Simulated assay, not measured.
Amino acid sequence: MEQEMLSTVDGYRAMVFFIEHLFEMTRSDDLAGILGGLQVAADGRPMDPAAWTDWLDAVSRARLNSHSDEL
């Protein structure tokens, strides 16, 4: 897997996009449930198989929306 760096701001944006997407998919206010699906299993993958793809999508969105290091 290719290692890419995100700025602090892009990482923050990616996290927000990711959590917004999870909320849209589940409509759950249960943070514990969301975090449970994000835990990394023994094989190195998230417990929720779609989580990694969703994360990569969020990172892509953050990069596309990166115009500066300001929020």
Rank of each mutant, 00 (worst) to 15 (best):
residue 1 M to D: 07
residue 1 M to N: 07
residue 3 Q to M: 03
residue 4 E to D: 10
residue 4 E to L: 11
residue 4 E to A: 04
residue 5 M to P: 01
residue 5 M to E: 12
residue 5 M to I: 08
residue 6 L to I: 09
residue 6 L to F: 08
residue 6 L to D: 06
residue 7 S to D: 12
residue 8 T to D: 15
residue 9 V to K: 12
residue 9 V to F: 14
residue 9 V to W: 13
residue 10 D to W: 00
residue 11 G to L: 13
residue 12 Y to R: 14
residue 13 R to W: 04
residue 13 R to V: 05
residue 13 R to F: 05
residue 16 V to G: 00
residue 16 V to W: 04
residue 17 F to V: 06
residue 17 F to Q: 06
residue 18 F to V: 06
residue 19 I to A: 04
residue 19 I to M: 09
residue 19 I to G: 00
residue 20 E to W: 10
residue 20 E to G: 00
residue 20 E to Y: 10
residue 20 E to T: 13
residue 21 H to W: 04
residue 21 H to V: 07
residue 21 H to R: 09
residue 21 H to A: 14
residue 22 L to M: 10
residue 22 L to S: 02
residue 23 F to C: 07
residue 23 F to W: 07
residue 23 F to D: 01
residue 23 F to I: 04
residue 24 E to D: 05
residue 24 E to S: 03
residue 24 E to K: 02
residue 24 E to P: 04
residue 25 M to A: 08
residue 26 T to Y: 00
residue 28 S to C: 10
residue 28 S to D: 11
residue 29 D to A: 00
residue 29 D to I: 00
residue 29 D to G: 13
residue 29 D to Q: 10
residue 29 D to S: 02
residue 29 D to P: 05
residue 30 D to N: 15
residue 31 L to E: 10
residue 32 A to C: 02
residue 33 G to Y: 09
residue 33 G to K: 11
residue 33 G to D: 06
residue 34 I to L: 14
residue 37 G to V: 05
residue 38 L to A: 06
residue 38 L to Q: 10
residue 38 L to S: 06
residue 39 Q to I: 06
residue 39 Q to C: 06
residue 41 A to L: 05
residue 41 A to V: 07
residue 43 D to I: 13
residue 43 D to A: 14
residue 43 D to N: 15
residue 43 D to M: 12
residue 43 D to C: 10
residue 44 G to Q: 01
residue 44 G to D: 00
residue 44 G to H: 09
residue 45 R to M: 12
residue 45 R to F: 05
residue 46 P to E: 02
residue 46 P to V: 11
residue 46 P to F: 01
residue 46 P to M: 05
residue 47 M to G: 09
residue 47 M to E: 09
residue 48 D to Y: 00
residue 48 D to H: 08
residue 48 D to F: 11
residue 49 P to C: 06
residue 49 P to T: 09
residue 50 A to H: 04
residue 52 W to C: 07
residue 53 T to P: 02
residue 53 T to E: 14
residue 53 T to H: 09
residue 54 D to F: 03
residue 57 D to R: 14
residue 57 D to F: 10
residue 58 A to R: 12
residue 58 A to D: 01
residue 58 A to N: 03
residue 60 S to C: 01
residue 61 R to A: 15
residue 62 A to L: 05
residue 62 A to K: 10
residue 62 A to D: 07
residue 62 A to Y: 02
residue 62 A to R: 07
residue 62 A to C: 03
residue 63 R to H: 08
residue 63 R to V: 01
residue 63 R to M: 06
residue 64 L to I: 11
residue 64 L to F: 03
residue 64 L to D: 11
residue 65 N to I: 03
residue 65 N to R: 08
residue 65 N to Y: 06
residue 65 N to V: 02
residue 66 S to L: 02
residue 66 S to F: 03
residue 66 S to R: 11
residue 67 H to I: 13
residue 68 S to P: 07
residue 68 S to L: 08
residue 69 D to T: 13
residue 69 D to S: 14
residue 70 E to P: 04
residue 70 E to I: 15
residue 70 E to N: 13
residue 70 E to R: 15
residue 70 E to L: 15
residue 71 L to G: 01
residue 71 L to T: 11
residue 71 L to Q: 13
residue 71 L to A: 08
